[in-house]
């Protein structure tokens, strides 16, 4: 338990500096703290998903679910902000370094000193993101993906086929929350500070826009959507800086507000004109199609011998 004084001790500036110096001096500690941090973040994300799924899955109308999730998120933010014991309250916890911060002691002072550890860490993030993408692709293109889509389309019909709808929903909320927890932890180690005020509903909104822009239930589309919205985000910041050299009294906040407004307009336009997003939903790619596609490609008459399907697994059918 952290008493009031202990809280002061980990939240103040000297604690922040000592965290940084430890990270610099002990690579092993630095990396293992990061790994443990990620593990805990994923665990916490999963637990949070499980907790929120309890009320969320017991409501009848679809949109109550979005409200429960909004309530869940805001509850968490308010609790963290007002309970300094959790994460140093409103100001957050600073002095969090990337796991490769210690590398900077091997470089002479200059741009490389800062860029190499950060760049390396960015590469790790990209790799992990790719891993999540592959995982998502795999579970979507499987009988489980079929199950998920069926529940989305018609819960009652899925139940009539002996599918345990609430269990699957719980599972997928936990999986999604674990990924979100991972993402949050990766982000915090990157920017070096964890504050509750970074995770406002506008962030959730950006993620929705990414998702719908790319196309519902299309992971590749999601990559494109993420790319576009991230470019909009970074691009607007860069152009803001560039513009400031011409317009001296440009309010930098306007760029941020403008971006949020553009995202809202993009989402509205998508909803009105192209709900499918850029890329429409695709088939669930399993081997099941090969039997049928094979027949179609050969333009054969309906054959009585189903054994001509390719690949393994034919033994038990005789």
């Amino acid at each position: 338990m952290l008493s009031g004084t202990a809280v002061g001790n980990i939240c103040n500036v000297s604690a922040m500096l000592s965290r940084e110096s430890i990270a610099l001096a002990y690579p092993a500690i630095s990396v293992s703290v990061w790994v443990i941090g990620l593990a805990f973040a994923m665990l916490a994300g999963g637990i949070m998903g499980l907790v929120v799924s309890y009320p969320a899955l017991r409501v009848k109308e679809e949109w109550f679910l979005s409200m429960i999730l909004l309530v869940g998120g805001e509850t968490f933010r308010i609790v963290v902000t007002n309970t300094p014991q959790i994460g140093c309250g409103f100001n957050g916890l600073a002095g969090i370094t990337t796991p490769f911060y210690w590398l900077s002691s091997y470089f002479p002072s200059g741009p490389l000193q800062a860029e190499v550890p950060t760049g390396l860490y960015a590469a790790v993030i990209v790799a992990l993101a790719l891993g999540c993408f592959v995982f998502a692709q795999k579970i979507c293109n499987s009988p489980y993906g079929r199950l998920l889509k069926s529940i989305r389309d018609d819960k009652v019909a899925a139940e009539s086929l002996a599918k345990d709808v609430s269990r699957v929903r719980k599972q997928i909320m936990v999986i999604g929350s674990v990924m979100a927890g991972l993402a949050g932890a990766l982000y915090v180690y990157y920017i070096g500070v964890a504050t509750p005020e970074d995770y406002i509903p506008a962030l959730t909104f950006s993620i929705w826009v990414m998702m719908i822009l790319g196309g519902f239930a299309n992971n590749r589309g999601l990559l494109v959507g993420t790319f576009v919205i991230t470019m909009l985000d970074r691009g607007s910041l860069v152009s803001g800086i560039l513009l400031q050299s011409y317009l001296a009294n440009l309010n930098p906040n306007l760029i941020v507000y403008g971006r949020y407004m553009v995202e809202a307009v993009i989402l509205l336009l998508l909803l009105v004109f192209r709900q499918k997003g850029i890329f429409p939903e695709t088939r669930i790619k399993t081997k099941a199609y090969t039997l049928f596609d094979f027949k179609k490609n050969n333009n054969a008459e309906p054959s009585n011998s189903p054994g001509e399907g390719p690949q393994t697994g034919g033994a038990a059918s005789g």
């Binding site: 109308e61 679809e62 949109w63 979005s66 506008a202 909104f205 929705w208 719908i212 906040n253 306007l254 507000y257 403008g258 949020y260 407004m261 995202e263 809202a264 307009v265 989402l267 509205l268 909803l271 709900q275």
Partner: peptide
């Protein structure tokens, strides 16, 4: 459209107005 789409649209409208006011 489904109510889910309408809810998303109302969030978009809210965000547009909110940041319009901010600007």
């Amino acid at each position: 459209v489904s109510i889910y789409i309408l809810v998303l649209a109302s969030f978009a409208v809210a965000q547009f107005i909110r940041y319009g006011v901010f600007s």
